[in-house]
Design a protein around this nucleic acid. Structure first.
Lengths: 108, 108
DNA sequence: AACACATATGAGTAGTAACGCATATAGTTG
DNA sequence: CAACTATATGCGTTACTACTCATATGTGTT
């Protein structure tokens, strides 16, 4: 187990990923995307965000390689690059949920 | 699998966690901490950060329940609240590493 | 009690990131 | 080609956050 032996560079890479996931709208886009490819307009409708804002977040996710654009006619469909991300998010969420029930967060 | 069915509140909770992990110095502190409890002065020495800054980050981690302070004489030792976090970070890291090797990130 | 050490905290600052507006680009249809 | 739709992007603003400095609080020692 290499848990306590991360290099400085490793930490930065991980942080870059966490920074992307740390924005509610962005995380919401990822979760809403799920396994399916969806056009931007769908995401706009699903999230209620402005088109500009959705494009702004999609750009960040795209540049990090988390999502992949796919042109289909006039539409651009966005897809998760790797569905494993969903299970990682699930693991994280389960942990958070467990901690909540254990009352670990309630000391504040 | 509930991956694509997160509620708004769930997303916010997860984001709060990711926001904490998205800061390199903070993530570094967590990783340096590992399984052991260490006094603030140790963390200051290990990270090279100012004492004020370390306290600033420890406070954030403490208020989120990720670390737990433990007074021992004049020192305050900080410990990871749940070592499972380390394995989650490990999972994340392994995924990031894998993606790098697959070249998923190199399209930018 | 006075002092030294370990840590926390309040205030101010600087850098960054999310967002909206206006506009550009690319595709489709007439 | 003109009009329309879908998406991207440059710019300016605002809000947040990491950080530093100065200082407070708490603990052990003499």
């Amino acid at each position: 187990m290499s848990s306590n032996a991360y290099s400085c560079e490793q930490v930065k890479h991980l942080c870059a990923l966490f920074k992307l996931l740390a924005e509610p709208n962005r995380l919401n886009i990822l979760c809403n995307l799920g396994m399916e490819c969806r056009p931007v307009s769908d995401i706009v409708a699903a999230t209620g965000l402005s088109q500009t804002n959705v494009s702004f977040h999609l750009r960040a996710l795209r540049e990090a390689g988390l999502v992949r654009p796919e042109r289909r006619g006039a539409f651009i469909y966005y897809c998760l690059s790797d569905s494993k991300l969903l299970s990682l998010l699930d693991d994280m969420w389960n942990w958070v949920e467990q901690r909540q029930m254990d009352g670990t967060l309630t000391d504040e």
